[in-house]
């Protein structure tokens, strides 16, 4: 598998460590009244799509950036790769 790093170009997947669903980027507000339930969903409830799926990868043997990879779980085609920090900064 090849991940096209937004800054470094195509790299072999063996340089990366997989973390899981990209929804992990959106940590709930711990001060909210529904925090306990929000964190339960955040930590444990997942969709399992046959198709496009966004996931987090860590470029451990590279620049140590976290990346959000959008991949088709049926065809394995990767349609998008972004720096997680960009998405996170835009959100905050």
């Amino acid at each position: 598998m090849i991940i096209n790093h937004p800054l470094l170009g195509p790299r072999d997947a063996s340089e990366f460590v997989h973390m899981g669903d990209a929804s992990l980027m959106h940590r709930p507000d711990p001060k909210s009244e529904t925090a306990a339930d929000d964190f339960y969903r955040y930590q444990y409830l997942r969709d399992n799509p046959a198709g496009l799926y966004a996931e987090l990868w860590f470029h451990e043997q590279g620049d140590r950036s976290w990346l959000v990879v959008t991949r088709n779980t049926l065809t394995h085609e990767i349609i998008d790769v972004q720096l997680a920090r960009h998405i996170a900064r835009q959100k905050s």
Binding site: V17, M19, L24, M25, R27, L56, F58, E60, R64, S65, W66, A84, R85, A88, R89, S92
Partner: peptide
């Protein structure tokens, strides 16, 4: 050492980027 570093970078880059 490895997993904690990875976790700390996740917190730094993704959870608390500000």
């Amino acid at each position: 050492a490895g997993p904690v570093y990875r976790h700390m970078e996740f917190c730094r880059q993704v959870l608390f980027p500000e």
